[in-house]
Design a protein around this nucleic acid. Structure first.
Lengths: 226, 226
DNA sequence: ACCTGAACACCGTTCAAGT
DNA sequence: ACCTGAACACCGTTCAAGT
């Protein structure tokens, strides 16, 4: 029996290609996915991949679709507010695990199936919250914009390679830099450096969601507590 | 006197390079800026550009910085709320004019001088609004996230080349597509297609800002009107 | 000190040729 | 029907050579 230097070659398929693409993106970021790394990983030629996938854009779309689907499918047992929070956190955590997702979502939001899926997930609880017709689209858009914007910033942070244990130290460095800023030009940013040092990304993200929820309540159901 | 086929060659400088880069980005998007197009435009060689600029990343940083500076420097005469709106609109319009700016801001927000500048511009009026210490960082972050997220989505839309006159028609196409969605899976998105058809991007953006401002008021100054 | 432009390594994509 | 891998056009970057 000859030594098996490579593991058994499974049949190439669209799924296996997309799966490998996601792994490469997760491991090495946007620039980690090239047709060279992909052919190497799949032990095949470039043409083989192009047989299953039209081009790199389609590959990125498929990767985005897959990851997005699993991010949005979390069950939603609680109140509308809890559901909004759950959907928001689902997207936040997905982008945290797959930083490239933020860029892709921003690029794909305009066209395709991405927008309706996110819209639907956020819009249902918005409706349930009692937001009147004529305001639901705008309200849902505001939430989606916030969620994607905040998660995208977080993803940008995640791209800076920092050992989790050093995160405190990292925040400390940034906070110290803020404290060194010109007091004439940056009085506010300086004054808020201490809050930066102590904040938690996830908590802060949720606080923003709650702020918008409070705004929704204030505008549309002014009688009730936030 | 010989015919002047090219206009007089001005001295190459960092400023002239960055200026040309912005023009190429505005005209043809992210992919419109390459060292080939840039050398052609400036009638020079690649090495000449590298003499003034370390690499493409630095060039993009400089382009971002310049455009951002002019976007944030609008005077602010009114109330804190008006100032928040003015800063938000300034960024929104800048990204509308320079769609590539959204991507750059998202990528650069983590490090560098970009964050403090935006933070300062948004944070000052937040402070003036009466948000108490301990909540200013989170509140400002929420606004900045929303502003960049919403503007980024808008920039993604702007990347789809549509003649302004056809915009109504374009929205109509998207809205019609939404109305064709599976009623089981997308009840909310379908129900909101009509609102999509009639919305105005800029108004909607401001409505989101106002929603967050209402939330801030509700949470931190519960006695006062939104 | 500043500029030229050929050369290099790398990228996405194509395609004739194989099985 | 599916895969191979050389080839193509293009990209960012370098660098010996010029002025």
């Amino acid at each position: 029996m000859p030594p098996r230097t490579h593991r058994r070659t499974e049949a190439l398929s669209r799924e296996r290609i997309v799966e490998a693409a996601v792994e490469l993106l997760d491991a090495n970021g946007e620039s980690g996915l090239t047709f060279r790394t992909l052919t190497e990983r799949l032990a095949t030629g470039a043409g083989a991949i192009y047989w299953h996938v039209a081009n790199k854009g389609e590959l990125l779309d498929a990767a985005t679709d897959g990851v997005l689907a699993s991010a949005l499918k979390a069950g939603s047992p609680g109140s509308p507010r809890d559901e909004v929070r759950a959907v928001a956190l689902g997207l936040f955590d997905a982008i945290d695990r797959h930083p490239w997702l933020a860029t892709q979502l921003a690029l794909q939001l305009s066209r395709g199936s991405v927008t309706p899926r996110i819209f639907e997930a956020v819009g249902r609880p918005v409706h349930a919250l009692g937001v009147p017709e004529g305001h639901r689209f705008t309200t849902t858009s505001a939430l989606v914009s916030y969620i994607l914007g905040a998660a995208g910033q977080n993803a940008a942070n995640a791209r800076i390679p920092v050992v989790p244990a050093n995160r405190t130290e990292f925040l400390d460095t940034v906070a110290s830099a803020w404290e060194e800023l010109d007091p004439e030009e940056y009085p506010f940013t300086r004054s808020v450096a201490a809050e930066l040092r102590e904040h938690d990304d996830r908590e802060q993200f949720l606080a923003g969601v709650d702020l918008i929820l409070a705004g929704i309540t204030a505008v549309h159901r002014p009688g009730e507590p936030g």
